[in-house]
């Protein structure tokens, strides 16, 4: 102050005294909703610096996180990729298990519904190495009471019959095999005709041109082959056209033969009650036991 000229000294004093009184006023004044004016001013004065500070810190932190902190990102990325692959595999495994549980539940339910019919559940453990034949291997054999020419089914429909039985395994000839034959009949008209395999689909071999066959009609086992119990689903008609000397009737198997994982081996030809046609099953005799016999090839 001593270094200032007299005129400036009084100006400085004026400014100081006025500023002090303005502050004094600010301390006393309380604005509605904003608190004391001195606080409003303090906040207004300091908040830009605080904001700038936060902005600077965020900027530094962001730069650090985005650039410098990415040193280990490549390793993390690789690790995450590895984790992702592992989890994908795990997911596939779990989905597979869930599907298996669902299938097993279906089989268990089927067995529960036919508790009085002797049958064995079996797992499909392999298929034929020969592409010309349609066979599968199951994990049941003589030890489980299996014999040749026993019907193999799923809750959806007929699968095939056992053709070779070993101690712990058995070979099953699928109904789609060219060598296969199933005694069958149309569900509606009860017209009987054997069903044979073509390698992929099924055909009904001896259907007269006079018989009216509708596409979509269901075909059931007739029991004439003495392997499959009667009235068990075989397939649905996908094509029926006149030909000489018999109609050509093509069927689509009802059992998912290309996705078999678990099957049931019937230890008898006792008639089964189908879930899909309960009224027919109810009308049909519940138990027909026939001795198992070799089927015609």
């Amino acid at each position: 102050m001593a270094a200032l000229p007299s005129r400036h000294r009084s100006l400085v004093l004026l400014a100081a005294v006025v500023a002090a009184q303005v502050l004094l006023l600010a301390v006393q004044i309380k604005r509605e909703r904003q608190g004391r004016l001195i606080r409003v001013w303090s906040v207004s004065l300091l908040s830009p610096f605080e904001r700038a500070g936060v902005w600077a810190v965020d900027g530094v932190r962001g730069a650090w996180n985005r650039y410098i902190g990415l040193r280990h990102t490549r390793e993390e990325n690789q690790q995450l990729h590895a984790d992702l692959e592992r989890l994908k595999l795990r997911n596939i495994e779990l989905e597979s298990k869930a599907a298996e549980v669902e299938r097993l539940e279906g089989l268990a339910g089927f067995r529960q519904a036919h508790r009085n019919v002797p049958m064995v559940a079996a797992k499909v453990i392999g298929s034929s190495a020969d592409s010309a034949s349609k066979t599968i291997y199951i994990d049941r054999g003589e030890r489980d009471g299996l014999k040749r020419n026993m019907a193999v089914i799923t809750p959806d429909g007929a699968v095939g019959k056992t053709v070779e039985v070993f101690r712990n395994t058995a070979q099953v000839l699928l109904i789609t095999d060219r060598e296969s034959g199933v005694g069958a009949m149309f569900a509606g008209t009860r017209i009987q005709s054997p069903v044979g395999g073509t390698g992929e689909a099924l055909v009904m071999k001896y259907v007269s041109n006079d018989d009216k066959i509708a596409v979509g009609e269901r075909v059931l086992t007739s029991g004439q082959d003495r392997i499959f119990p009667p009235d068990w689903p075989v397939g649905t008609v996908v094509e029926a056209r006149p030909a000489s000397p018999f109609q050509i009737v093509r069927l689509k198997p009802l059992a998912h033969l290309s996705q078999l994982e678990e099957v049931l081996v019937l230890l008898t030809t006792q008639e089964l009650e189908t879930r899909k046609e309960p009224e027919k099953a109810a009308a049909a005799p519940k138990l027909k036991v026939r001795p198992a016999a070799p089927a015609p090839h």
């Binding site: 009084s10 004026l14 005294v17 006025v18 009184q21 303005v22 004094l24 006023l25 006393q28 004044i29």
Partner: peptide, 19 residues
């Protein structure tokens, strides 16, 4: 009135009057 209201006014008046 809050302290400083007339204080500021009269400070300025006193300064200018003296000047």
């Amino acid at each position: 009135s809050p302290l400083g209201l007339y204080g500021i006014a009269k400070t300025i008046v006193g300064f200018i009057a003296s000047s």
